[in-house]
Design a protein around this nucleic acid. Structure first.
Length: 422
DNA sequence: TTGTGTTTTATTGCCTCC
DNA sequence: GGAGGCAATAAAACACAA
């Protein structure tokens, strides 16, 4: 007690090691803690405490982000619809509400269908603050596999906010329970009826709505209504096909779209690319020297995370040096300038598949960083974020002017590896 | 330099699970 | 009942504006 009377700050090296370890495993075992304690010359108690507080911090940031995002969605007129049943009251506090107050039709009429699954949902977990980014650079195998948010993020493929209906719908169309793990990670744990209504039913409604596409009509029947068996010739109407074509043309990423098979093919491949690019980018951030020959000084934990972003920058360079390679494979026309300006979004293949949506609504991750930095709500965080943003920005500039040969090398590496993956 | 706000660390109590 | 985790709290350390 006497010794610990005055708390001691962890050294940067200790923090780095702890963060690294935390990114790999949020819940270390006794042996791990012991090893870590030995390595870092700390007590197991300190290690346990640090991990405990670190988890709390993650959780807190997660909640903050949910609130911030909720406010933003609200201000843009979009009702919260993330399968969690979250809405916000007039004070901005987050609440779980009974579903009867959240009419799916009303949700749709507010543009959920057209915009609700935009980048906001896809990149919702893509935190902008420092710890969130960190997690994106590692394979999170922990029990929470949360975000950090998990975000959690691009390379994890397990975004707690990623409520892609496809993950809830089996090939035969039956609905599976949503990823409750992800729901738990939201930091809001409704119980009993609300839990069922909020997590399962809403995800089901969302999935059905997405499958129905424009055929989901405001004046249509309730989703729970059972119908008589439809005669086999019922779907032979050409008008329906025409309608489908028109709609699919505008929404190539819809599950029912004729292009969906191609997109799906890309999807499975993309996820592999995503994870590989993450690894590459992680290595990239550690190994690649910039054009000035200056060794990268960013190979600490934080910047491994940032490496994820830059990893996508790498893919962006790839697509930039040969614009046709990347996007044409997806049968999507993406403005090259746009891809450079919004490279992070567009280079995320998940988002590319939803290019229309991404373009229709700015990325939430971008929004969030702006909100945080502009409003000054979180002063301390903002200060640090601003510093890191600046740091990151400088780095971006450096990377943008990196020797193209290096980019080419990376591109080739990726190509080879992707070929292997195939 | 000082006051204030934020972050980090340590402690404690409660809860859940085995 | 013990172990581990979570949440609340206190206080030191830190950052920054006036």
């Amino acid at each position: 007690m006497e010794k610990n009377k005055k708390r001691r700050l962890k050294t940067p090296a200790q923090l780095k090691a702890l963060e690294d370890f935390y990114n790999d495993n949020k819940y270390p075992t006794e042996e791990m803690k012991s090893e870590l304690a030995d390595e870092l010359e700390l007590t197991e108690k300190q290690i346990s405490g640090w991990f405990c507080h670190r988890r709390l911090k993650d959780k807190k940031m997660l909640n903050d982000e949910v609130c911030a995002n909720g406010r933003q969605d609200r201000s843009s007129g979009v009702i919260q619809d993330r399968g969690s049943g979250l809405v916000q009251d007039s004070c901005g506090s987050t609440k779980h509400v009974h579903y009867r107050y959240l009419d799916p039709k009303e949700v749709e009429s507010h543009g959920l269908y057209n915009h609700g699954f935009s980048a906001a949902d896809i990149t919702y977990g893509h935190k902008n603050h420092r710890y969130a980014e960190n997690d994106s650079a590692t394979d999170n195998t922990s029990s929470e596999s949360s975000s950090s948010l998990q975000d959690r993020l691009l390379c994890q493929g397990q975004d707690p906010y990623d409520m892609e209906p496809s993950s809830h719908v089996t090939p035969n169309g039956s609905l599976l329970p949503p990823n409750t793990k992800g729901a738990n990670n939201m930091g809001h744990k409704p119980s009993g009826y609300l839990k069922v209504k909020g997590e399962i039913e809403h995800a089901a409604i969302t999935a059905v709505k997405k499958q129905l596409g424009k055929h989901y009509r405001e004046d249509g029947p309730l989703l729970s209504v059972e119908f008589d068996t439809i005669p086999p010739e019922a779907f032979e109407c050409q008008i329906a096909d025409l309608a489908n074509e028109a709609y699919y043309a505008a929404n190539p990423a819809l599950p029912n779209s004729p292009e969906v098979s191609a997109v799906k093919k890309q999807s499975s491949l993309s996820s592999r690319y995503d994870s590989y690019f993450t690894k590459i980018s992680s290595q990239d951030s550690q190994m690649v020297r910039d054009s000035t020959g200056e060794a990268s000084a960013y190979n600490n934990t934080k910047n491994c995370r940032k490496g994820t972003k830059h990893g996508f920058d790498g893919t962006r360079y790839d697509s930039g040096s040969n614009p046709s390679d990347h996007y044409e494979e997806n049968n999507l026309v993406v403005n090259q300038t746009d891809s450079l300006l919004h490279g992070y979004e567009n280079s995320n293949l998940k988002n590319v598949q939803r290019g229309e949506y991404v373009k229709s609504k700015p990325s939430n991750s971008v929004h969030k960083s702006q909100v945080y930095l502009d409003t000054g709500e979180r002063r301390g965080l903002n200060k640090r974020m601003a510093k890191e943003e600046k740091f990151d920005g400088d780095r971006k500039i450096k990377k943008q002017y990196r020797d193209p040969d290096e980019v080419r090398v990376l591109t080739n590496e990726m190509t080879v590896c992707c070929r292997d993956a195939i």
